[in-house]
Nucleic acid binder design. Structure first.
Lengths: 202, 202
DNA sequence: TTTTTTATTAATCATTTGTTTAATTCATCT
DNA sequence: AGATGAATTAAACAAATGATTAATAAAAAA
């Protein structure tokens, strides 16, 4: 019935994704999507039944991508904890520089419709990852301070993601250009792993 | 012409603030606001001219409050850097536990309409605060590692605010209740100052 | 080529939504 | 009590918006 991979279907999805990421669900109209993808308004419903359905599809795909990229570093069997920290910082920061609206999109959807996002994120995924194992090992060996690993993983994400979310303030405070802000974030690729280690080390 | 402080005016503003914080501007309708504050729909425009104006008023008030509370700790002449860290963590975490939608509201408005928010936040406010002075002094004295103070202030805010923003994920990962999550955040009041010191210390 | 299915279009529908109007009630002042 | 202005209400308007329809064009199958 539906040619999900037709050219127009993709055109609609691309434009819709761009708009949904930038403006959110409510502030994006179907006519905008149609205009942006230069298709006829009716084709949106022809291909995706409804605005809601289209959003759901884009949301699931986007967040699944985002999360899977996240988790594959966490579960690498070959790398040490320190290496994982470096890889994570570097990878996420690159990813978000490439798509600056991503964090807010995820976090907004998490607020508005947590269940749909949380279906994708299996609780185990992070808290039973190799990274957390390695952290717990370090604690057991007396290398790291005791503490709930939730703080450990939360801190990593906080230091990586939050600066992007508050980028307008940072840019204002430092009179940065977008480029200079990105340079600051690139600096953080090296700094964050060091900081996190210092936070947990005895 | 307008009785800005009449009972109904306040009722409208309270209901609107609650809804705007929870759902954002676009997803909140004037009829919802009218219903929630049990006033007649027309009174919204009678008192506040338009939905947009009403939002603007609430937004400015809310963010001004938020920011001023933030900054007054930063500029206290009597406290040390370490004390400021403790006070900040404690104060912000309490504030956000009391109004969990606040960070997302600020951050969303920062994305959608940066200029209106940034009018309130004078760039100097944070980067030329006593806290940053004390940090720079510490660097000069060789106590702290060299580094742009922007990282220092960003890290403090990141560690405090981001966990709230990602609270649904944390709650899911740890199978927390809301109460248990708040306890975790209360734990962080003590942890964050220590972490931040460790991050900057030589 | 003819037929049948799929894709696209313009026009329209039915709601929703922000806002306004005109009438009515309420409070205040003389 | 009566007059004046403010507050409140029900009703309606106009524009926007998500969705549908019926006709047409394009593509695929026969």
């Amino acid at each position: 019935m539906e040619a999900k991979y037709s050219n127009t279907g993709i055109k609609i999805k691309d434009a819709a994704k761009c708009l949904f990421l930038k403006k959110g669900y409510s502030a994006t109209t179907t006519r905008e999507i149609a205009k942006e993808s230069s298709i006829n308004l009716a084709l949106l419903n022809y291909y995706f039944t409804s605005k809601r359905k289209l959003f759901e599809i884009i949301m699931l795909e986007t967040i699944r991508d985002f999360m899977s990229k996240m988790v594959e570093v966490y579960n690498d069997e070959k790398t040490t904890l320190e290496e994982k920290l470096k890889l994570t910082s570097s990878k996420y920061i690159d990813m978000i520089i490439a798509e600056p609206h991503l964090p807010m999109f995820v976090v907004n959807e998490l607020k508005n419709n947590p269940s749909s996002v949380l279906k994708i994120i299996r609780g185990k995924m992070i808290m039973e990852s190799k990274l957390v194992d390695q952290y717990n090992d370090g604690v057991k060996k007396g290398l790291y301070k005791k503490g709930d690993p939730i703080h450990f993983v939360t801190n990593i994400l906080s230091l990586i993601v939050f600066p992007f979310i508050s980028s307008p303030i940072i840019i204002k405070m430092k009179k940065f250009s977008r480029k200079e802000f990105n340079e600051m974030m690139n600096e953080r690729k090296k700094l964050i792993p060091k900081w996190v280690i210092q936070m947990i080390k005895k």
